[in-house]
Nucleic acid binder design. Structure first.
Lengths: 337, 337
DNA sequence: TTGTAGGCGTTATCAT
DNA sequence: ATGATAACGCCTACAA
């Protein structure tokens, strides 16, 4: 339980002042190489560890960025987080990730915790049930903030996301070309923009073709198990649709499980298009056609936008919309590539 | 760009001293309710935000715990992280997650960053290529630390993990009972304990049955795409094994993709058992039999072990080994449940 | 029950 | 090229 080694100790050991030692640590100022060396070896000899907390207090910046995620189970968001973290690391920024588990209250607490920890920047992927008040509080923090993927809280803050309307349109157009007319939209949480937008796009495409329509839509957590049960119910209840548009890939996985368990003869008749294009989508049987969004790209762009905000506090908020692409495989009815 | 609201401002506004205001924030001391109220409303009125950094500097504890993960793409580790985070949150601890991407150098940098940020505790899931030196450095930090899942760096630190030897045995025994004799072990990174241990257990089971043997093992990143290619190569090269033991569920997904693409007639002949039992395993066709490890349980136990260490700095390191269970589905050759 | 004073470890400013 | 000194915002004795 020996006392902490501080900069003062190092300075004393090296026979210089604290100020000089500080400059050595930060590779700053104009110092003689010999001094640099001397201080460096003193640091090593004493086992000195930089106290970023103290530095932060003084310099009033922590070199950390907070990330609030709604649920780590969504692989797509994980991809986003990965590239965001890498991009920030290149600038010496540490990304502090925290999960709200789709709980607005928990999200609130995390936001406060992050603010109290003086993060220099903030990336928020709003949880389900995020309200206007949260968006306002976000804007009021004065911390450079960018909202991603879910546009919910992006009032006056920068937003980086995907053009989901276009995505829904893409899915619809392709399935229409296959001759599908009766559509179902499965999964996605009510009141969250991505679902809303994708359905808007889908409906727009359907409206252009006489006889085409959305016969049902079932909202829900975009998870495989939920989707399996939801799809089983759907198949039991009513007429079989020509096409099921799945809110994400795991939903498609669940749909096929249900199809095989409940109505194996329909596996090749019902056409499926999903969103996100997670790794597993290509491995599934049949390989899932999916509207790909490229989480890594979203992460990169988010980083860029955030750094811009952090570098220039006066920078205007912006909206970055990335265009999705349909990756055609077999679940939509196309022959094997 | 107005100046920061500090505790002193609040105190002045409420007509009390800084010390009193401080006590109010922390719900500590013996204060008159009226004083409490007055200070509280002053905080609200001024829009005061607690500066945890300053508090940490003074109290020399940050109420944060660092988590180093090797790769966020492994769903199993995500599960672990979830329950760990929840458990810590109950104690008012913020979990700071950082990803090393299986890169020991990056892991090294993250460790340093976390230490510099004065985390009160540390949970490490060692990256590929973690060496003894890292383990030593970990122990030398003096920070309460627990290593999970991969036993690599658990020299003198607490370790919470899964009994992988038993897991391998479980997989082997079940497949042997199905009459399998020619085994292949697919995936898992060389030099990482989980793979090594599972193979040890598998071999132990095989040794008990005459004629049973491991005809091949292919190490690799435990990802679906890699597994698809590896399995395709395996099928092209040599005699078809009776059973493929997959390092995790995604590997099994890849195996089935390869089977269907390269040798569809073998889909029902080759028996497969995987590890982890991720959500998708139950949805796959065929549903994957998997040695389940319960990441959430690992997370909970990790939290318990860490809190013990943090509460009592003199606590001895311990080793917690959780027992896995085989979840039987169809990929092993069992009939549908 | 409340106030006073000093310090946590670093960095910025101004001298020298 | 280097040093002295004063913050940064809070907490903890101890005193009143």
């Amino acid at each position: 339980m020996n006392k902490r080694v501080t900069l003062a100790d190092v300075a004393a050991h090296a026979g210089v002042s604290r100020a000089t030692a500080s400059l050595v640590i930060r590779d700053a100022g104009n110092l003689a190489d010999s001094t640099r060396e001397r201080v460096r070896s003193s640091m090593l000899a004493l086992g000195y560890v930089y106290h970023r907390g103290a530095a932060s207090l003084r310099a009033s910046q922590t070199k950390t960025v907070g990330l609030i995620l709604p649920d780590p189970a969504y692989a797509f968001m994980g991809e986003m987080a990965i590239s965001l973290e890498s991009a920030l690391a290149e600038r010496g920024l540490l990304l502090l990730t925290a999960n709200a588990f789709e709980d607005p209250q928990r999200q609130e607490r995390l936001l406060r915790a992050l603010i109290e920890n003086q993060v220099d920047g903030l990336v928020v992927l709003p949880a389900l049930g995020t309200d206007e008040a949260f968006a306002d509080r976000l804007a009021a923090t004065g911390i450079p903030t960018v909202v991603t993927i879910r546009a919910e809280a992006a009032h006056r803050t920068t937003y980086v996301g995907i053009d989901n309307v276009r995505g829904g349109e893409l899915a619809g157009e392709h399935l229409l070309a296959h001759g599908c007319r009766q559509f179902v939209y499965l999964g996605g949480l009510v009141g969250l923009r991505p679902r809303q937008d994708r359905m808007t796009g889908l409906n727009a495409a359907l409206a252009r073709v006489p006889g085409a329509r959305l016969v049902a839509h079932r909202p829900g957590p975009a998870l495989g198990r939920w989707a399996r049960d939801a799809a089983a119910r759907l198949l039991a209840e009513g007429p079989v649709p020509d096409a099921i548009v799945c809110h994400n890939d795991p939903v498609a996985f669940g749909v096929y499980r249900a199809l095989r368990d409940v109505a194996p003869h329909l596996v090749d008749r019902v056409r499926v298009v999903a969103f996100d294009d997670v790794d597993e989508a290509a491995l599934w049987e049949p390989p899932i056609s999916s509207v790909a969004a490229n989480g890594r790209e979203v992460g990169r762009r988010t980083a860029t936008a955030l750094l811009r905000l952090m570098d220039d506090p006066l920078a205007e908020p912006e909206v970055v919309l990335l265009q999705p692409e349909l990756v055609v495989r077999r679940s939509c009815g196309c022959p094997a590539a």
